[in-house]
């Protein structure tokens, strides 16, 4: 079964089209990069996918159904949409404890995921004292609480230093090797080039190319192919 399907997805805000008949498929067990310049519609597509935004037209399905229809979504899909998803006045442990309670997940998972993202020492530190990189890692910890078979990550490399980006690559690679499906959006192409199997390139709300990396790039570097496909717009 196809892991994720976008079919003629359209989202308008007033007269502007954030998504314009976007159609794409993400295959299971592969790392897919959703690439596009800032404002291309990557985040909007992901928000429609997980039910935070309602499409004006078309549909987005995950594991064959609407996200809201998934049984125990935290155990099926881990989602990271921005690094603001935590109460700054609460500790990492408290924030994750709330999420485990919501999802009926064993509290013991909190220590495991904090260790996996290397935040064990910051367990009882309030989130407002976290660096951006620590917040991103806490987001990833929250996404894997339910040990899901799929990860959806929106710009997870934003604000990370080179060491953080290297760590993120390792994290995604490890998840992929464990058989997870990963959909990761980014406008920073070099960071994804080494880890994605497939790419979907979107520009002005529509797909301009999709498929295995080698097929889409045609032997070029991902960045060069991207510039060619988007008319040089890498804003």
């Amino acid at each position: 079964m196809t892991a994720i399907v976008f079919r003629n997805l359209t989202k308008t805000y007033g007269k502007s089209h954030a998504l314009d008949n976007l159609s794409a498929e993400i295959q299971p067990g592969r790392v897919t990069g959703l690439l596009g310049p800032n404002g291309a519609g990557k985040s909007t597509a992901l928000r429609c996918l997980v039910g935070l935004a309602t499409p004006s037209k078309g549909r987005a399905r995950i594991l064959g159904r609407r996200y809201a229809r998934l049984q125990d979504p935290q155990r099926r899909v881990g989602v990271v949409l921005d690094s603001r998803g935590f109460h700054p006045g609460l500790s990492a442990y408290q924030n994750l404890h709330i999420l485990t309670t919501m999802g009926g997940i064993d509290k013991g998972r909190i220590d495991e995921v904090l260790a996996e993202v290397e935040l064990t020492e910051a367990k009882h530190k309030r989130v407002k004292g976290f660096s951006l990189g620590m917040k991103q890692r806490l987001c990833l910890a929250s996404a894997i609480l339910g040990n899901p078979e799929m990860l959806i990550l929106d710009e997870p490399a934003n604000g990370l230093d080179p060491a953080g980006i290297a760590w993120l690559r390792g994290f995604i690679r490890a998840r992929a090797q464990a058989g997870a499906t990963v959909l990761v959006s980014s406008h920073q192409l070099a960071e994804l080039e080494e880890i994605v199997d497939d790419v979907i390139i979107i520009h002005k709300g529509a797909v301009v190319a999709s498929g295995p990396v080698e097929e889409v790039t045609g032997g070029q570097r991902l960045e060069e192919a991207f510039l060619r496909l988007t008319g040089g717009d890498l804003s």
Binding site: V50, A68, L81, D82, R84, G85, F86, H87, L99, M102
Partner: peptide, 14 residues
């Protein structure tokens, strides 16, 4: 205000 609504509604989409 704190942006936790996204995490909440992603964890429980209904």
């Amino acid at each position: 205000h704190h942006g936790t609504a996204v995490a909440t509604f992603v964890a429980v989409p209904k």
